[in-house]
Design a protein around this nucleic acid. Sequence first.
DNA 1: ATAGGGTTAG
Length: 699
Amino acid sequence: MGYRGLGSCSWKYAYHHSLVSVTNSQIATTPLPSPWRHSCSSLHSTISKGSSPLAVLHAHFIKNGCLQTLNLANYLLTRYVKSTNLDHAHKLFDEILHKNTQTWTILISGFARAGSSEVVFNIFREMLAKGACPNQYTLSSVFKCCSADNHLQLGKGIHAWMLRNGVDADVVLGNSILDLYLKCRVFGYAERLFQLMNEVDVVSWNIMIGAYLRAGDVGKSIDMFRNMPYKDVVSWNTMIDGLMQCGYEKCALEQLYCMVEYGTEFSAVTFSIALILASSLPLMELGRQLHGKVLKFGFNGDGFIRSSLVEMYCKCGKMDKASIVLNDVPLDFLRKGNAGVICMEPKAGLVSWGSMVSGYIWNGKYEDGLKTFRLMVRKLVVVDIRTVTAVISACANAGILEFGRQIHAYIQKIGHRIDAYVGSSLIDMYSKSGSMDDAWMIFRQINEPNVVLWTSMISGCALHGQGREAIGLFEEMLHQGIIPNEVTFVGLLNACSHVGLLEEGCTYFRMMKDVYCINPGVEHYTSMVDLYGRAGRLIQTRNFIFENGISHLSSVWKSFLSSCRLHKNVEMGKWVSEMLLRVAPSDPGAYILLSNMCASNHGWDEAARVRSLMHQRGVRKQPGQSWIQLKDQIHTFVMGDRSHPQDQEIYSYLDTLIGKLKGIGYSLDVKLVMQDVEEEQGEVLLSHHSEKLAVVWHH
DNA sequence: ATAGGGTTAG
């Protein structure tokens, strides 16, 4: 085992024979070396006194000069790495004077597993500089870091070096190179490598299929999935999860049933994925069956699965069931006295607590969410920052600023540093709820070159129509060497279109394609159509749509239609709405927009015809709602709503307010009402718009 | 030693 492939290569440093032979001694797999065994009993007393066993061993090695015995030193190094004590590992590493390939490799693979890519690259460079010869393990660790860090150049360089020197890669090493190329989206290279590899195993196929799914190429991945010679659990998991991520929930469910039929045993990951599937469909029945199996197979101690269960019940609206899962301590694990599981438990438990809090928010039960969060804080000392992040994100999407603020305060109280993750979700929350000052404060406070962080600030500016600020941020970001991604450009283009910065928008769109090689997605195209349309360049808009082959996207036509209305171009508007209805016959928005446009030109008959067509086709529109939060309570309003306990007061106050507004020259744009109602009635409907009701309640 | 699950932004 161990060293192969590189042994025969013409490694350019000559003195490697000795190193290579040492490499062949299999330190990590041999039983404890004898000096260690001798000192075992003497060590035992020291260890039991409470000092760290590894540190004691380390001290012992230094005292007896064992560190310069390579296999002993490597053994200790392995122990440090396995206990994820990387600082100590590095220190020990520096103390070892004569390192062999294995010494370097142990350290490199340790840091690679911890995700410290930069450290790995540095050690690897040092290793080459010292003339040590990397083996298959070393290289696959380095490749892993390359793919985690998107470091295509380095990976390519090493691969080229391997080819030049006739270094064979075994399957594992081949797979890590394959993974690198796929993670960096150079599919051509990956495909050629896949064909040229001497040996291809399940993992290779899984890597390929997973990559195609991530890229959204469902057809190709299904094709490969069918043709692969053997499928393991991971293959099925990858396929089911990927289909779900691509929005093919039904297909994913089908594959899940196929998997059962095929006879592949479920792993913990399968349960986790299947439960997420059940909550996104949502299929309560499937979820309950899965829950039964989870209990049967004893997977209920797994934090991921528990939180998926909680989330599933929350999404199905069964909060009581969710809270039962949450409070169900896995007694099995306690009884077995499985120390590892119990140690993991607080963290895993927190994941499900976080899901529970998010679940309450999802279901609009903010009070319960807050209560659960407080309980969580009281019961568990350490709060996992990741779950807190998810909760903040839920707050942002539900628009409950107060809750988010409390969590923010809590994070500061426990003294946790606000990193890019939490920061991004906080910025998102503050900007969505209108507190731009707070958003800026967080942004300035973090000062990290993180794309998501900058993107959330740019998007926040876009949301508030601060186009110039967004552009300023973007330029500053480029100046700092941060590479923008597709989401960054969504925010930036939106900012441009909101403010009507046509020139700038076009420049950035070109920059995105030409400089950053990002293929525009639906959002980018829609933004561009919006940009041209709002600027009144209707012909240009039409040309843009056909030139880019995006006439199948309903969002594009909807934006175009709004622009037609904005610039009162009825003729173009009619044509656009025909296109829209052809593309999206079951989208209520299409009918509303069209009927609105007819109505604003007094084409009441036509407007009514559109509406009846909509009813005929069974398309229904959800009425718009507005919320407002006062203290701990959320008040919900629908247009013309009379259900609020204090509706009398609200309406009379609203009428007084509108009377006053009219007195100072405010007029309601009756054209904005889509129905064929009398002018007067239209005014009433508009003035009782849900947002107005909510605002009035506030006073 | 290589692949798979839930921290952030549209």
